[in-house]
Design a protein around this nucleic acid. Structure first.
Lengths: 333, 333
DNA sequence: TATTGATGGTAATACGTTTTAACGAAAAAT
DNA sequence: ATTTTTCGTTAAAACGTATTACCATCAATA
């Protein structure tokens, strides 16, 4: 209920002084004595600046919108957690949305983006978005970070070492003596999907092995989709002994498919997945994975938005290398 | 860049008309002809109302802040997903934060709450919050929904059938012939923790069984904590044959502990957990669970905030009854 | 004809900050 | 003693919308 004017009056100064004290404006100094007095009075009155008014005048809200495909996917949850952590450190807050919300024209998120209500935008796994939402953001010049997925907009692309991770996973199987290796990919058309598939192919080629097209499937990173992909691949290629999964959640589906088809993992089939989610250790068959810095990616995305870093720079790569975590789902042939 | 004034001028009307057309104000009708013209011109100019200005004038932002203990916990992720879904439907957006962020005094979230930048507040698993954050929200009369946890503030409490769920879980073990049954609870002092523990006790009493205090432990709903709790309980009570876990994530830890202690599940020990998370089917030993409407709870929380429902009503219960999902972690004794 | 009512629109104000430019006083430099 | 600098502060102007109260116009009723 108390406004800045009330505080100013009570402290015997102008509103400008109160504003500077509260916001810690550094360009213009305030006498230590008045500063303390204002602070004390503000505290007494339980004063907090009206955020709408503040945003209106200063034209930044401290809000960052983040869009992920699915919050319940542990991979995305971890990225979100990192972003949330860093945003808090920087005095910003995160507006979360699942991708499906972007289709809803009445979505408040879209209105916020259109109305410059957010200072930044983070898009993850958002493929087919040449439509309103992003187009608007781009036109409104809202700083945007794309996570793992290229899009025709002048936004910064933040990437993980996807090619390396897929190579590492595939090479691990090759080292174990496997020669016929399939790939459960994520959604087709996404940059990181392409990169991981490329890593898989590269490793096979380098070892002089054959790349079987019927051993490659694309779908969403969900358990059900993973099961279906695995079934399809395994039925088409009964002689397969290794499977690279581009997302750990798909791998869970693959384990299920193998079980249903009476294929023993790891004795008849070795499975390795990208992303070392916590659950990997606790599955029916503990999963061999390639660990990627997901939390770190969330942190970096936030840093890039508010950082002095190149605003429109083309792409930034997280250089921390993926590491293989061996468990029970892979085995020497 | 285009403001409401530009649109008004281009359409040959006043700004008031534009505002009414855009916001669909129902109190005052606008000629269909002008409505279409304004809409078309707004579209052409790619106009979207400045959200800060809009919030300032109308004093509501369409933002709802949600605080959960840990985003990566699948239980909480599902609640969040439900909230996000419903918020989108209602034209609102969700500001997500993990509980730890509330400790950070510079947190933007706190400033938003203090500065009436959010229309509502949802708090989950937030225990020790008699401090600034919530105190402010209460003083500022921000509508608040408490998820599963009482707090000394005049907020609405939204609850799941916790007692029933715990009774159901415990009764299932009793029906299987178990007589010595322990309980892995969540954090002490939270309302839902108390209720679940109560359900456990009630079921035991009703069956004339003993409630062993050394078979009850409290900790955070995390795998590591679950493992530690289970180990403690099992060491103190070697004759235990059943375990009720108040959170499925803790149960994963319990499975791990049992494995480390060479206790066979379900032959020597039956485990049943509350919350049927997707992973439950895919664990080393598929988990018997009690399914609760988590997504639905997120939905309801949002509905309650914007609904015409009793604003300050004491408590609302989700009446959908918990159902038992039998898998392989429980077995007749 | 005069009166009412409905319809479609306007002008101007308030929302509560942040920030710009200017200003007096005190201290330092000339 | 005068000029310059620095310091601390102020007054007033945006920021861009939603909304209130008021006003035409016109058709229909009395």
């Amino acid at each position: 209920m108390a406004g800045i004017a009330d505080i100013a009056k009570a402290a015997g100064v102008s509103t400008a002084v109160v504003s500077r004290v509260i916001n810690g404006d550094s360009t213009l100094r305030i006498a230590e004595e008045t500063r303390k007095r204002v602070l004390r009075i503000a505290e007494e009155h339980d004063y907090a600046p009206n955020s709408a008014a503040s945003s209106l005048r200063s034209s930044h809200s401290g809000l960052i919108a983040m869009v992920v495909h699915d919050v319940t996917n542990p991979v995305y949850a971890e990225i979100l957690s990192g972003a949330q952590h860093q945003a808090t450190l920087q005095g910003q807050a995160i507006l979360i949305s699942e991708a499906s919300a972007l289709d809803n024209q009445a979505s408040r998120l879209l209105r916020l983006i259109g109305g410059r209500g957010v200072d930044g935008l983070i898009l993850q796994s958002v493929g087919q978005l040449s439509d309103t939402a992003l187009a608007r953001a781009a036109r409104k010049k809202i700083p945007t970070v794309l996570l793992q997925t290229e899009l025709d907009a002048d936004a910064t692309l933040l990437t993980l070492p996807d090619i390396e991770a897929a190579e590492l996973a595939t090479q691990h199987l090759i080292d174990l003596g496997h020669a016929r290796i399939g790939c459960l990919a994520t959604r087709e058309g996404l940059t990181f999907t392409q990169n991981r598939v490329e890593g898989w192919q590269t490793a096979l080629h380098a070892a002089g092995l054959e790349v079987e097209n019927s051993a490659l499937e694309f779908a969403d990173p969900a358990i059900d989709d993973g099961r279906m992909m695995a079934r399809k691949i395994l039925e088409a290629n009964p002689d397969l002994t290794g499977l690279v999964c581009c997302n750990a959640v798909s791998a869970i589906g693959a384990l299920e498919a193998a079980s249903q088809m009476q294929i023993d993992v790891p004795n008849q089939l070795s499975i390795v997945a990208i992303h070392d989610i916590e659950m990997a250790r606790h599955l029916r068959i503990p999963l061999t994975t390639v660990k990627m810095p997901l939390f770190e990616m969330g942190v970096r995305a936030i840093e890039m938005l508010s950082g002095s870093q190149s605003v429109s720079a083309g792409r930034v790569a997280i250089t921390e290398q993926p590491v293989l975590v061996e468990r029970s789902s892979t085995r020497v042939l």
